[in-house]
Computed example of a mutant assay.
Amino acid sequence: MKRLSIAVILSSLSVGCASVPKPLGGEYLPSQPRAVVEAGRNGGPVRWGGSIIAVEPEAERTCIQVLARELGPDARPRLRDPDEGRFVACRAGFYDPEVFTEGREVTVTGIVAAMTTRVVGEYPYTMPEVAADVIYLWPPRVEYRYEPLPPTWALWFGPSWYGWHHHHLWHPRPIHRPRPRRSGRGN
């Protein structure tokens, strides 16, 4: 029993650690942007993520405004309604607005450097500014659509039942026989 519980704990730890991309690993404060603004504190290491709202290239750095979302166990933003606030992630260098487009998902690691106020509509909105070490752009999510198959009873009762009209499932396909040759001249 003791061996089994140790094996389960070790396997769950290895699965949890293996799923976070290497650049995003480490220990971070469990806070969210809204809580940091309310507390008014700076300087803590954070790992936040969400959807890109705007990209603002400047002369020496690029700032990315992000609508924060809760992170999953793989450090990717979850597909839930955002209620964590907004933050700005700034990093030296140029990040192309055509690559970092609106709506793409990012995860950012860094230190809360300051509080900044941006205008959203006509409302002055205070949000934390992160001096980013890593800005990790996630690949777009792929959605799969699954079509239901007809129930097995529909296969027995014919194509008109249950709205399925795949006649080839119930009727044999015609056999293609070679055409007889026409008799020509001299035959």
Rank of each mutant, 00 (worst) to 15 (best):
R141S: 06
L13T: 14
I64P: 00
H167D: 14
P150S: 08
Q32M: 13
G103R: 04
I9W: 10
V36M: 12
F94K: 00
V15A: 15
E102K: 06
W161Q: 07
E105H: 12
P178Q: 13
I135W: 02
F94G: 02
W153G: 04
A18C: 11
E122A: 13
K2Q: 14
S5M: 15
I135K: 00
E27H: 14
R182I: 14
C63Q: 10
R61N: 05
R145I: 09
D133I: 09
A154Q: 08
L169G: 02
G158M: 07
P77S: 03
S14N: 11
L10V: 10
P124Q: 04
V36K: 05
D74C: 02
R61A: 07
G44D: 12
D74A: 05
M1D: 13
R47Y: 02
R61L: 06
T116M: 12
S160C: 12
A75N: 03
L79K: 15
V119Q: 15
V142W: 02
S14L: 15
H165K: 11
E60C: 08
Q65C: 08
G50H: 03
R86P: 00
L24R: 07
C63F: 08
S183D: 14
T62C: 03
Y144A: 09
A131C: 06
Y28T: 01
P97N: 01
V66D: 01
Q65S: 10
Y28G: 01
V55M: 07
P148W: 09
V112N: 00
A68M: 03
W48H: 07
P77Y: 00
H171S: 12
E102W: 01
P128E: 00
R3Q: 11
V130E: 04
P77C: 00
A39K: 15
P30C: 03
E98C: 14
